[in-house]
Design a protein around this nucleic acid. Sequence first.
DNA 1: CAAGTGATTAGC
DNA 2: CTAATCACTTGC
Length: 194
Amino acid sequence: MKLRPEFYKQKTETVARELLGKTLVRIANGKRLAGTIVETEAYVGVKDKASHASGGRRTPRNEALYGEGGHTYVYFIYGMYFCLNVVTKNKDEPEAVLIRAIEPTEGIEQMKNFRPNKTLTQLTSGPGKLCLAMDIDRSENLKSLQSQNIFIESAPALKPKKIARGPRIGVAYAEEWAPKKLRFWIKGNPHVSK
DNA sequence: CAAGTGATTAGC
DNA sequence: CTAATCACTTGC
C-alpha cells in the first residue's frame, strides 16, 4: 500500500525516522525496482542553514520544496549525480527528507545494468548511487508520490532499538546546524552509506 | 586522500 | 556576465 499524502505532512524529523524500513518503488522501462529505505536525513526549512531553502531562499531549482508534502524533489549535484528527496509538510513550508540509502529487494539485475561491476552493497548505498541504480534523474522532479512510476509503500514500524541517529553528511558549512542529529539509519545495516 | 564534473547561484 | 560553490563518488 502506498503511503498516504497525510504521512508526508507530519513533522519532518518524524517522516525521516518513520521512512526507515519502508519500501521505495520505481518503475523503470516497465520493470519494478524496489528497496527498503535504510538511511535518511531531515532538512527542516528556512531556519536550517544546511537546507536549500535556508533563509527563505527560493530559486528555480528548489521550487519543489515550496509545494505540498508528498512530492519528489530531485536535484543535480557535483556535475554528475542526482539526489532524491521527499517533500514534507504543507505548501510554503520548504522542508524535505533526503533518501540516502536503500537495501535492494526487487529488480536487482536491472539495477546492476544501471551500475555495472558493482557488488550488492555498492549498488544503492548512497544518495547518488541509488538514483543511478533506479534510473532517477531530473525528469522525476516534482512528481507526486501517489503516481505510478515512483512511490513509497508502507511497512510495519521498526523497533526503536533498530534506529540510530547522528549528524548529517556533507554539511560542514552549516555552522550550528552541522552537528544536529538529523540523520537516521537502521543500525548495522550493510547498505547504509559509509 | 584528492580530483572530477557542470548546473546552479550569488555577486558584480 | 563571471566565478565560486556543491545534501557525492571513485580511484589513487
